Amino acid sequence: MNTLNQFKNFTANLPKNGESDIMPALFMGHGSPMNGIEVNEFSAGWANMAKSVPLPTAVLVVSAHWFTRGTKITAMDFPATIHDFGGFPQALFEVQYPAPGNPALAKETASLITATAVELNHDWGLDHGAWTVIRHMYPNADIPVLQLSIDYTKGAQYHYNLAKEIAALRKKGVLILGSGNMVHNLRMVSWEMINGGGYDWAMEANDKFKTAILNKDHQALINFEQMGSEVRLAIPTPEHYLPLMYTLGLQSDKEQALLFNDKAVGGSLTMTSVKVA
Rank of each mutant, 00 (worst) to 15 (best):
residue 236 P to F: 11
residue 169 L to P: 03
residue 217 D to A: 12
residue 244 L to R: 13
residue 15 P to K: 11
residue 55 L to R: 06
residue 90 Q to M: 15
residue 152 Y to E: 04
residue 91 A to T: 14
residue 149 S to M: 08
residue 162 L to S: 04
residue 206 N to L: 09
residue 195 N to W: 13
residue 147 Q to T: 08
residue 268 S to Q: 15
residue 239 E to P: 00
residue 42 F to R: 05
residue 202 A to F: 10
residue 96 Q to N: 08
residue 219 Q to P: 07
residue 264 A to T: 08
residue 61 V to E: 10
residue 211 T to G: 13
residue 80 A to K: 15
residue 124 W to G: 13
residue 268 S to I: 09
residue 252 S to H: 15
residue 213 I to N: 03
residue 47 A to Y: 14
residue 125 G to F: 04
residue 160 Y to V: 05
residue 229 S to H: 08
residue 168 A to W: 08
residue 166 I to V: 10
residue 265 V to E: 08
residue 194 I to Q: 13
residue 79 P to K: 09
residue 93 F to G: 14
residue 98 P to Y: 04
residue 237 T to I: 00
residue 232 R to C: 03
residue 48 N to K: 07
residue 158 Y to R: 07
residue 260 F to T: 02
residue 138 Y to H: 05
residue 136 H to I: 03
residue 116 T to D: 12
residue 15 P to L: 10
residue 50 A to N: 06
residue 72 K to W: 15
residue 8 K to T: 12
residue 221 L to T: 06
residue 256 Q to K: 10
residue 90 Q to V: 11
residue 240 H to R: 03
residue 165 E to D: 09
residue 136 H to C: 07
residue 237 T to V: 04
residue 43 S to P: 00
residue 174 V to N: 08
residue 243 P to Q: 09
residue 141 A to E: 01
residue 192 E to M: 13
residue 200 D to A: 14
residue 92 L to N: 06
residue 85 F to V: 03
residue 100 P to F: 01
residue 130 A to P: 06
residue 46 W to D: 02
residue 7 F to A: 14
residue 188 M to H: 07
residue 271 M to L: 11
residue 69 R to H: 15
residue 145 V to P: 06
residue 106 A to F: 06
residue 277 A to D: 15
residue 223 N to V: 07
residue 252 S to L: 14
residue 150 I to L: 11
residue 19 E to W: 02
residue 89 P to I: 04
residue 214 L to S: 05
residue 15 P to Y: 01
residue 174 V to C: 03
residue 87 G to I: 06
residue 140 N to V: 12
residue 169 L to E: 10
residue 92 L to S: 10
residue 86 G to R: 07
residue 42 F to H: 10
residue 152 Y to P: 03
residue 258 L to F: 14
residue 25 A to Y: 00
residue 183 V to W: 01
residue 150 I to V: 09
residue 94 E to Y: 09
residue 196 G to S: 13
residue 193 M to W: 00
residue 176 I to H: 05
residue 87 G to S: 12
residue 68 T to D: 13
residue 73 I to W: 07
residue 101 G to A: 02
residue 220 A to S: 11
residue 14 L to Y: 02
residue 270 T to D: 12
residue 53 V to E: 07
residue 9 N to V: 15
residue 49 M to F: 14
residue 38 E to P: 03
residue 88 F to P: 02
residue 33 P to E: 05
residue 229 S to G: 11
residue 266 G to R: 05
residue 230 E to I: 08
residue 114 T to W: 04
residue 239 E to Y: 02
residue 56 P to V: 03
residue 106 A to L: 04
residue 22 I to P: 04
residue 249 G to S: 02
residue 64 A to G: 11
residue 208 K to H: 11
residue 265 V to H: 09
residue 23 M to P: 09
residue 12 A to R: 12
residue 212 A to V: 00
